[in-house]
Amino acid sequence: MAKEILIPQGTYTVGVDFPEGTYVFDSEKNDGTFDLFKNDKEQSNPYFNLDSDHGYKCRIELKNGDRFVLDVQVKVTKAEMISFE
């Protein structure tokens, strides 16, 4: 069974207060947003609506220096590797 943690709303910096890796963020039926600011400012900033009517869970790779903002508590699980074999 996948391990999960609940993290509170707030601003997180990957590599400082959140570990690098690929994760699934799920706001568990609460409307919320996940706003990501990549280290390279020229990259687009992915923005996700979590569990809103037309939203989805967010699966994303986070690298050191990235920053993300949550406006609601979310459940986080480590994303499993996808195998094409």
Partner: peptide
């Protein structure tokens, strides 16, 4: 460590 800081945030919450 990253996990130590995350721990503090989770407790404060």
């Amino acid at each position: 460590s990253v996990y130590n800081k995350l721990l503090a945030k989770c407790c404060e919450a």
